[in-house]
Amino acid sequence: MGFHTFDVDRADALEDPGRYRFCSREELVAALDIGDGAVVADIGSGTGFYTNEIAPFAGRVYAVDVQSEMHELHRKKGAPENVEFVAAEASAMPFDDDELDVAFSTMTYHEFASDASLEELARVVQPGGRVVTLDWSANGTGDDGPPVDERFALADCVDAFESAGFRTVDATGRKETFVHTARR
């Protein structure tokens, strides 16, 4: 599992407001618990659907995506001034050690989940910093999102983060998704 990307030809689906039924702006903001002037990274930012929602609460937001085509779509749509585009794999981000206060991914963990990616998050997120992962659950029905065999179970996510040196703060399973919040 992992290491596939969302088809850029279907990127308009990433702008569907129906996505809020899986994670509202308010829920994400609360989970991130962003402090004043915080440096935040959206891992797998796509067209910036959630990036732009978080930007007003942060000092700087890095929109990290492996596909530069997604960044072009995000730029066309418009991005807040405090958003910077970073074309990179989650396993090799061009950030300094401990640079990020917070990192998050919404519906993309299954695309980048690996020991190398989690080790990279442990490198770039400062001690005490948070990583919030909202993704499709392997325990879901598969009615929405990717096929169930491309997903991870919440317990697998928790184990992977804890193996990379994170401490789980919250782990909540839902019908189709899960939310995992960890501290470094």
Rank of each mutant, 00 (worst) to 15 (best):
residue 44 G to I: 03
residue 50 Y to W: 10
residue 107 M to N: 04
residue 49 F to S: 10
residue 93 M to Y: 01
residue 54 I to V: 10
residue 118 L to D: 01
residue 96 D to Q: 12
residue 44 G to H: 07
residue 24 S to G: 06
residue 48 G to T: 09
residue 80 P to S: 10
residue 24 S to K: 04
residue 66 V to M: 12
residue 20 Y to M: 05
residue 102 V to G: 08
residue 69 E to V: 08
residue 49 F to V: 13
residue 3 F to T: 14
residue 102 V to C: 09
residue 123 R to W: 01
residue 114 S to G: 03
residue 8 V to W: 01
residue 70 M to F: 11
residue 54 I to A: 02
residue 159 D to Y: 06
residue 129 G to P: 00
residue 138 A to N: 10
residue 155 A to D: 14
residue 90 A to E: 02
residue 68 S to F: 13
residue 138 A to D: 07
residue 166 F to P: 09
residue 27 E to H: 06
residue 1 M to D: 05
residue 37 G to E: 06
residue 138 A to M: 08
residue 169 V to A: 15
residue 123 R to D: 00
residue 62 Y to F: 15
residue 101 D to I: 01
residue 65 D to I: 07
residue 155 A to K: 15
residue 126 Q to A: 15
residue 129 G to E: 01
residue 45 S to A: 14
residue 61 V to E: 12
residue 38 A to E: 10
residue 180 H to Y: 09
residue 36 D to A: 11
residue 150 E to C: 14
residue 110 H to E: 01
residue 14 L to R: 05
residue 134 L to D: 03
residue 12 D to P: 01
residue 8 V to C: 02
residue 71 H to W: 08
residue 165 G to H: 05
residue 66 V to S: 12
residue 47 T to A: 02
residue 154 L to C: 09
residue 85 F to C: 10
residue 24 S to Q: 03
residue 99 E to Q: 14
residue 8 V to N: 11
residue 182 A to L: 05
residue 104 F to L: 08
residue 2 G to R: 14
residue 137 S to M: 05
residue 184 R to G: 07
residue 96 D to L: 06
residue 23 C to I: 13
residue 10 R to P: 02
residue 124 V to S: 06
residue 167 R to G: 08
residue 60 R to C: 06
residue 16 D to V: 00
residue 106 T to E: 00
residue 153 A to M: 13
residue 90 A to R: 05
residue 24 S to M: 02
residue 134 L to E: 09
residue 167 R to H: 12
residue 40 V to H: 07
residue 72 E to W: 01
residue 166 F to G: 09
residue 155 A to H: 15
residue 51 T to M: 02
residue 178 F to H: 11
residue 148 V to A: 02
residue 59 G to A: 06
residue 11 A to D: 08
residue 129 G to V: 00
residue 40 V to S: 07
residue 105 S to N: 11
residue 115 D to S: 13
residue 90 A to I: 11
residue 140 G to H: 01
residue 50 Y to A: 04
residue 119 E to F: 01
residue 82 N to H: 09
residue 39 V to M: 08
residue 88 A to R: 06
residue 174 R to V: 02
residue 142 G to D: 13
residue 104 F to P: 04
residue 75 R to A: 15
residue 20 Y to W: 07
residue 91 S to T: 02
residue 169 V to F: 11
residue 180 H to R: 15
residue 53 E to A: 09
residue 122 A to V: 00
residue 79 A to R: 10
residue 46 G to T: 07
residue 134 L to M: 14
residue 178 F to R: 10
residue 85 F to A: 12
residue 55 A to F: 04
residue 81 E to L: 04
residue 170 D to W: 06
residue 74 H to V: 01
residue 126 Q to W: 00
residue 130 R to K: 15
residue 146 P to N: 14
residue 127 P to Y: 03
residue 108 T to D: 00
residue 28 L to S: 07
residue 38 A to V: 07
residue 52 N to E: 14
residue 70 M to R: 12
residue 146 P to E: 12
residue 177 T to D: 14
residue 33 D to Q: 14
residue 13 A to H: 12
residue 118 L to A: 00
residue 93 M to C: 05
residue 39 V to S: 07
residue 6 F to A: 13
residue 174 R to C: 12
residue 165 G to L: 10
residue 68 S to D: 14
residue 99 E to Y: 03
residue 127 P to V: 06
residue 10 R to L: 15
residue 14 L to N: 05
residue 45 S to F: 02
residue 22 F to A: 00
residue 71 H to D: 08
residue 129 G to R: 00
residue 52 N to R: 14
residue 4 H to A: 12
residue 117 S to C: 04
residue 150 E to H: 15
residue 176 E to M: 08
